[in-house]
Amino acid sequence: MLELYHGEPNLFSLKPLIVLKEKNVEFVSHHVDPLKDASYENRFLPNDEVEMNMEGEGPILVHDGRVMTDSFFMSIYLDDVFSPMSLRPAGAEAHWRILAGAAGFGQLLGPAVSTLGVFRYLAPVLRKRGADSIKAVLAARGFQERREGWTALLAPEDPAELIEDSRRKVGLGIGKIEGILANSAWLAGDSYSLYDIDSFALTHCLTSLTPDLLNQTTAPRMMNWLERIRARPAVQAALAMSLTGKPEQAFLPGPEHSRWG
């Protein structure tokens, strides 16, 4: 039995959804909204990897009783366990390229895109609804860092410095992706791979979230790469799982920005 607990198909939740659709694997989808069902995670506790989920409100995969978090590592697991159609080119070099790339973009873009998204779309809603709206989710999350991800959204004003730094990181990330695509059609080389899925999931919302940073002038190759990925039937199918019709506007508290280094 394969089950995925996920939110709207954006950022972290989007990755395993695309992988499952690409590989054409049957699974039970649990579309969860922590603001409506704050304690859905409790059925897995105690579980360190769920409780300390470093992606904040990221997806949870359950395969025959094995519970997994971290959207990229669960995607590797899915690729390992379900064949055919490998999403990773063979060889140690490609393996390194995918892991190093996802680690770098995960640290740079994961927190930055989440920050820009939650303050644009989620914080205004929560501020209007007031502190009570997140009471249940705070009570259900044992890990202090995850509670802080939520409470930060209730501050009366947006954190200007953090948003500026997030824009800087997003700009850097776009430049890096554009640079890689100057040398190869896909991020890991000649073929579409988990590296593309991982980076697409983190960046496809940027055409609407930060259009001044990502557009035909600043990053034409990346725009073309996004189009090529969006056109894939599996990606269309994953995006079509949205309940709101606007997955690129759905954000939940994500990973922390690095505190050191």
């Binding site: 990897e49 971290d70 697991y77």
Partner: peptide, 13 residues
């Protein structure tokens, strides 16, 4: 493969 997932999760931790 599950232990491989766990290996990566804890390295990231």
């Amino acid at each position: 493969p599950y232990e491989r997932w766990r290996m990566r999760w804890w390295m990231k931790y």
